[in-house]
Design a protein around this nucleic acid. Structure first.
Length: 425
RNA sequence: GGAGAGAUGGCCGAGCGGUCGAAGGCGCACGCCUGGAAAGCGUGUAGGCUCCAAAAGGGUCUCAAGGGUUCGAAUCCCUUUCUCUCCGCCA
C-alpha cells in the first residue's frame, strides 16, 4: 500500500511507475476517491463537532431541570444527517481501499524498466561443470536412485506433488538443517510459525486480494495455506511498534509452501521445479527505512553464501519493473545452474518491500529519543527453496554411473555420507 | 464439542447512559531537592484520520472488532474474534 499523501503530491511520478509495473490500476479514480473521502470527512466532522457541543449543552440543561424535548428532536435531525454522511464515507472508503490494495509497490530507481526481457544479470558465480557424458535431468536420476517418486504422490494427492524416499528424504532434511544453521549463525532468529493463516495476514504481506486465486483455502475455517513463510513472518509483528533499539530484527523459518499454480498448466510439468507443495527456508528482516537498500544487498549475499557453500554455480539477476514482485521495490533473483536444462533457474528471490507491507499491517518502530513511531521496512528472501536446491545438487553432482556425490558442506548433515547410490529394491 | 468468565492507556486497575481519551497506582521522561544517589515533591506521559503552505493550533474518531438502540454509549442490545477456567476428545 502506498502513502496516499505521497501519491497525491507525486502524481506524474507514480503514474509512470505504475506504467512501468504494467499496473492496470486507474490512478485518476484513486485520486478522485481520495479527494472525495477527505471532503466528506470534513463535512461529517463539522456536523459532529456541532452535535458534540449541543450534547454538552443538553446535559447542562437537563441538570438544571429544563425541558429538553424540543431540543432533542432538533438534534435528532442533525444526528441523522451525520449517519447519512458517515454511510457515504464508508462506501467511498471501501472503494478507495479496494483500489489501494491493487496498487503495486513503486520500483526503485535502480531497477531496469521493462518486462521479463529487461531483467539484468548482475553477476555470475561459479563455473558450470563440464560433463564428459550427457547430464541427466534430476527426475530421471531420482527415479533411478529410488529416492524420488511422483506416481505415489499423484495417487495420494494429485499432480504437482512429490514424495522422497530414503536418502532422498534425508537429503531434503539435511538441506533444511544446513540452511537453518547457516542463517542462525548470520543473526537470523530461528522461528516456527503457523502454516495456515487468516485473511488479514495474506493481505498484509501483499498476497490478497490480488493473488487470492493462487492460494489454497480452507473455506470452512477461513484459513489459507501459506505460499511462503514470508506471510507468517511478516505478520508476527502486525499492529506492533518496535521499541527503540530493537530493530533490525531478522528471522529465519522453515516451512512447506503451498501454491495452486493456477494458470501454469503445461509449465514445468516434469520434476521438482513447480509443485503445489514444496519446502523452503526463508529469511525475513524488519529494518530502519534508510538502511533497507543496504539490507537487501546483505540479504542477497546471505542467500548467495548458501549456494557458494553448496558449490552450486549461480547467477544474480535484478528483476525489471514489470517482473519484480508486487510488494517489492527491488528484487534480486538467484538462479542456479541446471546442467540438464543447460540454463539457470530461479532458486531464491530476495526483495525489499520498503514500507509497503508495514503500511498494510501497521508495523512501526521508534527511534532512540524519537517522538513518533514510523513505519519499518521489510525484506524477505528465500534461503533457499529446498526442492530446487535438492534437484540442483542431483544434477550438478551427478556422475556418469548415475550416482550423486554429496557436497562437502552437507556431509555432516548426512551422517558423513559422501555419495548417494541406488537404494536396494 | 459442552458449560462458564473475561477483553479499558506501556503495565495494573476504576468507571450511576451525559461534562470520560477515560480516576488511581506502577513504570517512564524532565525538573526541584542532594556532595551524589534513594526517598520526597512537581510537571508531563496513546494512536489514527483530517483542516492549515508549514509550525502553532483546531476538528473528529478510537475503551477487542463490527453492527444496533439513543439527542448522547467504555457503560444497554446483537454478532464475531481472542483469552482464561472446568468437562469431553486428542498427537
Amino acid at each position: 500500500m502506498l502513502d496516499p499523501k505521497y501519491v497525491r503530491e507525486h502524481q506524474a511520478e507514480v503514474r509512470k511507475a505504475l506504467e512501468d509495473c504494467k499496473s492496470k490500476v486507474d490512478l485518476s479514480l484513486y485520486l478522485d476517491l481520495e479527494r472525495r473521502r477527505r471532503d466528506l470527512m470534513v463535512s461529517a466532522d463539522k456536523r459532529k463537532a456541532r452535535l458534540n457541543q449541543a450534547s454538552e449543552e443538553m446535559s447542562r440543561l437537563k441538570k438544571e431541570g429544563k425541558d429538553i424535548t424540543e431540543y432533542r428532536s432538533k438534534l435528532s435531525e442533525l444526528s441523522n444527517e451525520i449517519k447519512t454522511v458517515d454511510a457515504e464515507i464508508t462506501a467511498v472508503e471501501k472503494d478507495f481501499h479496494e483500489i489501494e490494495l491493487q496498487i503495486c509497490n513503486l520500483p526503485h530507481e535502480s531497477v531496469p524498466v521493462g518486462g521479463e526481457e529487461a531483467n539484468k544479470e548482475v553477476r555470475r558465480v561459479g563455473e558450470p561443470k563440464k560433463f564428459d557424458f550427457k547430464p541427466k535431468p534430476h527426475e530421471e536420476l531420482g527415479l533411478t536412485l529410488g529416492i524420488l517418486d511422483f506416481e505415489k504422490a499423484a495417487k495420494v494427492a494429485g499432480t504437482r506433488f512429490f514424495s522422497l524416499a530414503g536418502l532422498g528424504a534425508k537429503l531434503e532434511r539435511a538441506l533444511v538443517n544446513f540452511m537453518l544453521d547457516q542463517n542462525s549463525q548470520k543473526g537470523y532468529q530461528e522461528m516456527v510459525v503457523p502454516h495456515l493463516v487468516n485473511y488479514e495476514s495474506m493481505e498484509t504481506s501483499g498476497q490478497f486480494p490480488k493473488f487470492i486465486e493462487q492460494a489454497f483455502a480452507i473455506e470452512k475455517d477461513k484459513l489459507y495455506l501459506i505460499p511462503t513463510s514470508e506471510v507468517p513472518l511478516a505478520n508476527l509483528h502486525r499492529g506492533e511498534t518496535f521499541p527503540a533499539g530493537s530493530i533490525p530484527k531478522k528471522y529465519t523459518a522453515y516451512t512447506p509452501c503451498y501454491r495452486r499454480e493456477a494458470g501454469s498448466y503445461g509449465k514445468d510439468t516434469k520434476g521438482l521445479i513447480r509443485l503445489h507443495q514444496f519446502n523452503k527456508v526463508e529469511m525475513f528482516q524488519f529494518v530502519e527505512p534508510e538502511k533497507s537498500m543496504e539490507a537487501l544487498d546483505q540479504l542477497t549475499a546471505d542467500a548467495e553464501d548458501l549456494l557458494k557453500k553448496l558449490g552450486l554455480p549461480y547467477r544474480v539477476v535484478v528483476l525489471a519493473t514489470g517482473d519484480k514482485s508486487f510488494s517489492s521495490v527491488k528484487t534480486y533473483d538467484l538462479e542456479v545452474w541446471l546442467p540438464s536444462q543447460n540454463t539457470y533457474r530461479e532458486i531464491s528471490s530476495c526483495s525489499n518491500c520498503t514500507d509497503f507491507q508495514a503500511r498494510r499491517g501497521a508495523i512501526k518502530f521508534k527511534r532512540e529519543g524519537g517522538a513518533k513511531a514510523e513505519l519499518v521496512h521489510t525484506l524477505n528472501g528465500s534461503g533457499l527453496a529446498i526442492g530446487r536446491t535438492w534437484l540442483a545438487i542431483l544434477e550438478n553432482y551427478q556422475q556418469a554411473d548415475g550416482t550423486v556425490l554429496v557436497p562437502d558442506a552437507l556431509q555432516p548433515y548426512m551422517g558423513g555420507l559422501k555419495m548417494i547410490v541406488p537404494a536396494k529394491p
